[in-house]
């Protein structure tokens, strides 16, 4: 436990330093409205990362969720454009994407195909399929009238943005599932040692499939929020989810030594708050990517402190 505490303290210190820096640099940073804005932004990264967290928990890699989310958002936009209501559109596209996620799960779980390469393949194919809805053109029709934009603009009790509500709800449910329920243990057992899990009576393939479905679903929800914020169905909107989601999950792992719901949140929070701060300082977007990548690398290096020390010692000796 003490090892975990040490990393946690290190990360919180780091986070505090970042917050302090932004507060000093921009008076707008430490305001309620900015935090609501930041949380709204955070919710997109955080939700996508949460789905990925399940896949990493079962010991696999998903390279398709961002592509799947593009398909879901285009499907939703398409349903909206042909006149369906927002609820139906969202649910119908989630259903579609769940079945595609299940395909990943079956290929990797049941047939034992290598996760990374298979999901790159299925992801690309599904991304190609997403073009069927509009040939890659934006989908505007009915967007404003249908009420779908409430997914981003709506507020619970007039203050809390809907994306934040969705994020909190999904995190709470996932926390219950992964850390409090008996099913959560099976996810970790499968990820840790699939053979031992099987000999303990756990249906390994089933848990792998569920994890891939959750990953596809959550990324899709994140991208739907994103698309409804943009006010148009844009095919490439979800592609950018890949990097921050992986970074968030791995920052979480480097603190808690395994993929966890809270670790993923801390990871997503750290990344988002940096992006928000840099936006306020009007730093161009590509610097943010740079910072996200560096914080991913830095956090993992930090978590392997023992490796660093032995490495430094070796260099000294050699």
């Amino acid at each position: 436990m003490s090892e975990v505490n040490k990393s946690l303290v290190a990360f919180l210190t780091f986070l505090a330093a970042i917050l302090l820096m932004f507060t000093l640099q921009s008076e707008y940073f430490l305001t309620v409205s900015n935090f609501l804005q930041a949380f709204k932004h955070l919710s997109i990264t955080a939700i996508a990362a949460l789905g990925l967290c399940f896949v990493v928990a079962v010991g696999k890699a998903d390279m398709s969720f961002h592509f799947f989310s593009c398909f879901a958002a285009m499907a939703m936009s398409y349903f909206i454009s042909i006149g369906y209501g927002p609820v139906f559109s969202v649910l119908a596209s989630l259903l579609l994407i769940a079945s595609l996620g299940l395909l990943n799960g079956i290929l990797v779980g049941r047939f034992g195909l290598p996760d990374m390469v298979t999901t790159i393949g299925t992801g690309t194919a599904v991304f190609g399929l997403a073009y069927l809805f509009s040939g890659g053109r934006y989908i505007y029709r009915n967007f404003i009238d249908s009420g779908i934009m409430q997914l981003n603009d709506g507020k619970l009790f007039g203050t809390i943005p809907i994306p934040v509500v969705v994020m909190v709800a999904l995190y709470f449910l996932s926390w219950l599932l992964l850390h409090k329920s008996k099913y959560g243990r099976n996810f970790y057992a499968v990820g840790n040692k699939p053979l031992a899990a099987r000999f303990s009576g756990i249906k390994v393939a089933r848990y792998l499939a569920i994890a891939f479905v959750i990953s596809a679903l959550f990324a899709s929800i994140a991208n739907m929020v994103q698309v409804s914020a943009q006010g148009k169905g844009e095919i490439r909107a979800g592609v950018t989810l890949l990097m921050p989601a992986w970074a968030a999950v791995f920052v979480g792992i480097s603190i808690f030594k395994k993929p966890t719901v809270y670790g993923t949140f801390i990871g997503a929070f750290m990344i988002s708050i940096m992006q928000n701060g840099f936006t306020l300082l009007s730093v161009p977007f590509y610097y943010m990517d740079f910072v996200v990548a560096l914080s991913l690398i830095g956090s993992i290096i930090l978590a392997n402190f023992d490796v660093i020390t032995t490495w430094i010692n070796k260099k000294r000796r050699g």
């Binding site: 290929l107 390469v117 790159i120 393949g121 992801g123 194919a125 190609g128």
Partner: peptide, 9 residues
């Protein structure tokens, strides 16, 4: 795009 993805899988 679709074909290449499927080809890979």
């Amino acid at each position: 795009t679709i074909t290449k993805g499927l080809l890979m899988a």
